[in-house]
Each structure stands twice: as C-alpha cells, then as structure tokens.
C-alpha cells in the first residue's frame, strides 16, 4: 500500500524537475513566474502525500502554510511585473 504513495511522490518530483526547464528557458518574466507557481503546487501535493508515507500530520500543516506563503509571494511577483509596486 505504501509503495503506491512513494511512487506518486517520485512522479511528482520528476514533474517538478521538468517544470524547472521552463523556469530556466522561459523567454519572459511571467513565464518564469508561472513555472515557479507550478513547482509550488506540485510541492504542496507531494507534501500532502509525504504526510501519509511518514505517518506524520505535521507535513500537511506545513503544506497549508507553504501554500499560503507561496500565494502571497506570487501576488507580489505579479504586482512587480505589472509595475504597480
């Protein structure tokens, strides 16, 4: 049963590495911002799954806080790109 969870986390990690390609290539700054946003989303999903793998609820709590903080940082990056800061 545990193996399926670890396999899923591995898949998500590979996907994170793939989105880093867009983070490096991305011709414009907003492209990099959405690549970073994708990495953040996948990290949160992986953290929720790790909470089951290690049988620790604290991983999920960290995922919630990480999600809210990455939301705030994305909003500020967007304000900077739009020239409103």
């Amino acid at each position: 049963m545990i193996d399926a969870w670890i396999l899923t986390v591995l898949c998500l990690t590979v996907l994170m590495a793939l989105s880093t390609v867009r983070l490096v290539l991305g011709p414009t700054a907003p492209d990099r911002a959405i690549a970073l946003d994708t990495v953040n989303t996948l990290t949160i999903a992986a953290m929720i799954l790790l909470g089951v793998v290690f049988k620790e609820v604290i991983f999920v709590d960290v995922a919630i806080v990480y999600g809210l903080l990455s939301f705030v940082s994305t909003l500020y990056i967007a304000k900077y790109i739009g020239g409103e800061l």
């Binding site: 414009t28 907003p30 959405i34 949160i44 939301f71 967007a78 739009g82």
Partner: peptide, 24 residues
C-alpha cells in the same frame, strides 16, 4: 483544507499574473 487553499489560491494568482503580464 490544504486542497481547498490550493484550488482557491491558484485561481487568484493565475488572474494576477495574467493581468500583470498584459499590463507589462
């Protein structure tokens, strides 16, 4: 709760980045 946060914040930040990109 984490999934609910994720769904809500992703929609808002996508709109923010799209608007900022069009303004820039």
């Amino acid at each position: 709760l984490a999934a609910a946060c994720l769904a809500f914040t992703n929609a808002v930040s996508a709109h923010a980045i799209a608007r900022a990109a069009h303004r820039s």
